[in-house]
Amino acid sequence: MATNTLNLPEQEYMLPGNRACAGCSVGIVFRHMSKALDGKAIFVVPASCFTVLCGMYPTASVQVPVMNSVFPGTAACASGIAASLKKQGRDDLTVVAMAGDGGTADIGMQGLSGAAERNANVFFVCYDNEAYMNTGTQRSSLTPLGAKTTTTPAKGKMQFAKDLPAIVEAHDIPYIATASPGYPGDLYDKVCTARGISGTRFMHINAPCPPGWQFPTAETVAMAQLAVETGAFILFEIMDGKFQLTGKSLALADKDNRQPVRKFIELQSRFGVLDEETLARLQERVDERWRKAVARHRAEE
């Protein structure tokens, strides 16, 4: 049975008074991830917003061990820790690599690919706020089509975001999932699942960012939920190659009642006044991905 609000553990691993932006979704993500891991994890963190959340020397806002890493080095550093723990016979800890979209899909991609190919005993989590938010909102390869960033300032990004889970899936690892801070129970359950598996596990988490996406801080959760409700972000897991929709996305597939992408886009000022053609391309892309996901879900059910 899926975890709900009332059976989530009470124990917290993130302390109040941290350095994250008001309304940052990464706080929600980390709270539920760390609950699912029961705190028995070592986090490896490259330069990213999460670095800031974790705090500056000599104080920390998270009650888990964190190892900071150079930007491209997350997966390798995590591999090293995993190997070290194995040599020491410690099998009670999960090594979590926690990187942003840049640290995963851009500069971190080589390291992630290497670790995944070796099936390193690492749980790699990409919290995807869809641009280099920590350095001031520069485009990444996961920035969506049409989004304005400080390096796509006038016309918005000209390319679609790349399909990160598909790239990772090509490595044949035991577990891949997506998750959203809009659905903490689903996220919690997936982290619990990942925790129980050895080898490389990967999770792609949609992480709405009020300053970067340009929406009011209060809307973070609503934005995360809209991403799922429109099908712009699909909740699924792939266990040993078997693809299944989960949670809200599964419910949407059953009822076939997705919202139009416009509803999600128009709340974010980063898209400015989107021309109809770009909007249509975005909708078309979402529809295509959605159709494929539903078809695959049904085929592998």
Binding site: I42, V44, M67, S69, V70, P72, G73, A75, A76, C77, A78, S79, G80, I81, A82, A83, S84, L85, K86, K87, Q88, Q110, G111, S113, G114, E117, R118, A120
Partner: peptide, 28 residues
């Protein structure tokens, strides 16, 4: 030799592995 052998995908990662392993208690 009783050791973990990691065939990394780059020298950058080789040192990354060493850093991670040395920090968590291994001679590398």
């Amino acid at each position: 030799l009783d050791a973990e052998f990691i065939t990394v995908e780059s020298e950058h990662s080789a040192m990354g592995v060493c850093i991670g392993a040395a920090t968590s208690g291994s001679r590398v």
